[in-house]
Amino acid sequence: MTQTLERNESTRMRQEFEQPPGSELYVGRYSTGAEDLVDAELDRLGRLPANWDAQGAQPIDSRIIEAAKTLVRLLRYEPIGLPKIVPIRNGNLQFEWNENGRTLELEIETPSTIHFLKWDPTANIEEEDLYPIDDSDTTKTLIAWFWGAGIATYG
């Protein structure tokens, strides 16, 4: 067993340094500590007073804050990167990703509903719709779209 392990180790040591081109799928970008940072930002937004934009905005609805925290907890081990969190004057908030001309917005419209917008003018993509906040698969698919997840071209 010892000898087998050692021989395998030695062989794998060479093999794994050389991944064949196209053998990996890009899944997206992680940000360590994102859950804590997002939580802290949500707490801050939850303390915004009425008229926080000096134009009559409502405070952020505490049920929306809680729904956002639940969403982030569900996604804490997923490659969500570090989204911006933008308060909306009607008391909602949205998560935003922007990079290389591509935009994804997930607005928590009610404690149980997300309104998404995906936009990439270079690819002529502009879609929006509503879906249930507990539909994590849809959220993951949208974020994967934003990162351009697909076959990595290595080599």
Partner: peptide
């Protein structure tokens, strides 16, 4: 084990 606020590119192995 990884520093806080590190950005990490993730790749899944297809093989």
């Amino acid at each position: 084990i990884l520093p806080k606020n590190a950005t990490v590119r993730g790749l899944a192995n297809l093989l």
